[in-house]
């Protein structure tokens, strides 16, 4: 059972970051400026922290080749230059790390021809290839990936997720993303990183946990949107509805509770005889998540202040 430990890590923009990651899926939600990219780079061993310690089973990845050999990583920027073809590079990688990188490349990025030269790859394609190389590791000690689902192309996303879930059963899988929907798809333990500080760990990446107290949004696609909208008009769960026929016929509904909203839509569809094509919860963007974090922190501060303050004197009773 391997364990990754970050102990009081200072490395701009990370501020005294301490965390421990055992086997399982760990999702770090935040933008690159918040420090997610730095965490992945530190874990991959390509950077040293300014202060503090990063250790994988006691070894610092930045100072231990054997530890690095057992880390599967996808960096924010795969900007390396390398001579030769994709297949020769993957073969060399397989020799070095004992992985089956060529097979993994066929599975996770089938569009990339093995005979292509590495110099001809775009940045996006290099990330795709690096992701395949990371997922090829048979028994890594740590998987640290930055935006893996964005790096995979359409059809490969499901396969990438499946492989990540399989790896998470045995080793720590650390995924950094700025996309709430991607965080939801990965599942596991969620941590929100804001300006270098771990501010909170919501139970999941659904809107009710990410942005508590804010309205949730549901996107509905169906065969007769106007009829469904007429039916929903009387529903008390729907606080706000919008529909633009030009934008693909999508209805956008807002309410307080996602589950109740979805049930209301289903009931209305049944009543109106409308066929639902898609029902999707809109994911809040990172700014909204940060706003919610600020609101939660403020509420906690107020609660603490109220707890310390002596109870206000009772108002005089009127005769």
């Amino acid at each position: 059972m391997s364990e990754l430990t970050l102990q009081s890590v200072w490395s701009p923009p990370l501020k005294n970051l301490s965390a421990s990651f055992g086997p399982g899926m760990h999702v770090l939600l935040g933008a690159e400026a918040d420090g997610t990219a730095d965490v992945i780079e530190l874990c991959a061993g390509v950077r040293l922290p300014r202060r503090g310690r990063v250790a994988l089973d006691g070894d610092a990845p930045a100072a231990s080749p054997s530890a690095r050999r057992q880390i599967a990583s996808l960096l924010p920027s795969e900007s390396w230059t390398q001579a030769g073809s994709i297949s020769s590079w993957l073969e060399e990688l397989s020799r070095l790390r004992g992985s089956r990188a060529l097979e993994a490349a066929r599975r996770f990025c089938p569009e990339l021809e093995a005979g292509r030269s590495l110099a001809s790859l775009s940045g996006v394609e290099r990330r795709e290839l690096a992701l395949a190389a990371a997922l090829a590791e048979p028994t890594p000690k740590l998987v640290a990936l930055h935006e893996p689902l964005a790096a995979a192309r359409g059809g490969a996303v499901a396969r990438v997720l499946e492989r990540l879930q399989a790896l998470a059963l045995e080793v720590p899988v650390l995924v950094a993303t700025r996309n709430v929907a991607d965080a939801r798809r990965c599942g596991g333990r969620l941590l929100v990183l804001e300006r270098g500080v771990l501010v909170r760990g919501p139970s999941d990446a659904w809107p009710s946990a990410m942005t508590p107290g804010l309205r949730v949004e549901l996107w509905v696609e169906c065969d007769a949107p106007r009829r469904l909208l007429a039916q929903l008009a009387t529903s008390p769960e729907v606080e706000q509805a919008s529909f633009d026929g030009r934008a693909g016929g999508r209805i956008e509904l807002r309410g307080t509770d996602l589950e109740r909203l979805a049930l209301a839509v289903t009931r209305a569809a049944l009543a109106a005889g409308v066929e639902l094509r898609q029902l999707r919860a809109a994911s809040p963007d990172l700014d909204t998540v940060h706003g919610a974090s600020a609101g939660l922190a403020h509420a906690a501060y107020r609660a603490a202040q109220d707890g310390r303050r002596p109870a206000p004197p009772e108002p005089p009773r009127r005769p």
């Binding site: 991959a44 390509v46 690095r68 050999r69 790390r97």
Partner: peptide, 11 residues
Amino acid sequence: MGSLWVRYGVG
């Protein structure tokens, strides 16, 4: 620090 092969485990 960030060299490709170093990251993949060479000394």
